[in-house]
């Protein structure tokens, strides 16, 4: 026992943790989660968004069913098509999800910290025996669970519609793929939750935080693709028209585009819902040899394919949360 520790035991202090503070940083976490979730689930804001998602799901899946009914019996992955089949003028449900999930996530989190500031409840809550860690984590988890709950309900609803509309249950492989798709969608939402939470720490005005989050989302949805292309052209110009040059440029563009969570999510979705997809990169003719195009991969192979995308989504969520966490720890809490 070091001298320091001995001294503390003598003076009856609690053994210090890494930061030298007593007790668990998560004291009171579940009280926060419970309260925040109750808030989310009873809020009008969430009700509107839930209605929107349900209507979208019902509309697109109904439209998909019209198309799919004729192919019952010919397709092993009929249920996956429920999510991916588009019927003019509607896009497929996955297309809508790429739009709705960030919207829900941002709506859940853009006023989580600044809202407490503005209601002047923050100092009162932090005067209770909890750490800031528990408050921030509790808020994040509550939003995350709410998002997961909403998405799971929609997911079940779609499968239910499929069972009724197609007149047959999904196969084991299909259920597995759809489950992983649900997981990927929830973590895609996680990123936007973390973004909105970060902005709610940075900006005192909830409207600013909401706009900031939406701006980031728009940037990645609309501009990042163009920017990646431009950057790739500038950094890896094609001077002489060699194959190597073309390839290098295409590789760079792909790598850059993967900085966007939208790309990661889209690739994960494609990998999971289109079993025949074997690569997202540039496929060279020699790589194609011996591969029968169109034969579906087993789930484990598809999972391996999208593993980097999935872990990328999770890592980005954690990173953004950590950043918000550091900022929140340093923030002055007086109103």
């Amino acid at each position: 026992m070091s001298q320091l520790e001995a001294g503390m035991v003598r003076s009856g202090m609690a053994a210090p943790q890494a930061q030298g503070k007593e007790g668990s940083p998560w004291t009171g976490l579940w009280a926060v989660v419970g309260k925040e979730m109750a808030d989310h689930l009873t809020s009008i804001r969430m009700l509107i968004l839930e209605l929107l998602v349900v209507l979208t799901a019902a509309g697109t899946v109904y439209a998909a069913l019209q198309t799919l009914r004729s192919t019952v019996g010919q397709d092993r992955f009929l249920f996956l098509r429920l999510f991916t089949t588009a019927r003019e003028p509607l896009p497929a449900f996955v297309g809508f999800l790429g739009l709705l999930v960030p919207l829900i996530a941002i709506a859940l989190a853009f006023d989580s910290v600044n809202g407490e500031f503005n209601r002047r409840t923050l100092s009162r809550v932090l005067a209770q025996p909890i750490y800031r860690d528990a408050l921030l984590m509790g808020k994040f988890l509550a939003s995350f669970f709410t998002l997961a709950l909403v998405l799971t309900v929609i997911w079940l609803l779609i499968i239910g519609m499929g069972v009724i509309g197609l007149g047959l249950p999904p196969g084991g492989e299909e259920v597995g793929r759809m489950l992983w798709f649900l997981v990927a969608t929830i973590f895609y939402g996680g990123i936007w939750l973390a973004v909105a939470l970060l902005f709610s720490i940075l900006f005192r005005q909830p409207a600013t935080a909401a706009l900031g989050s939406i701006a980031v989302w728009l940037f990645f949805t609309i501009f990042w693709g163009i920017l990646a292309q431009l950057l790739a052209r500038t950094l890896r110009p094609i001077r002489y028209g060699f194959v190597e040059e073309v390839l290098a440029q295409a590789r760079l563009e792909l790598a850059l585009s993967r900085i966007s969570p939208n790309t990661l999510y889209t690739e994960a979705t494609i990998g999971l819902l289109s079993p025949s997809v074997r690569s997202f990169g540039i496929i060279l003719p020699e790589q194609l040899q011996g591969i029968l195009l169109g034969t579906p991969l087993p789930l484990t192979q598809s999972l391996l394919l999208i593993w980097p995308q999935l872990t990328g989504l999770i890592a980005a969520t954690l990173l953004l949360f950590a950043l918000g966490y550091v900022l929140f720890q340093r923030q002055e809490i007086r109103a």
Binding site: M13, A14, P16, G20, K21, E22, G23, T27, R119, R120, T121, S123, R124, A127, Q128, P129, I130, Y131, A335
Partner: peptide
Amino acid sequence: RQPLSVKSRVGYMPDSIGFYD
């Protein structure tokens, strides 16, 4: 160092106190 011990024994009424309306 021992904020939890302090905060579980001390009641604090901040200025311009706020509640969840």
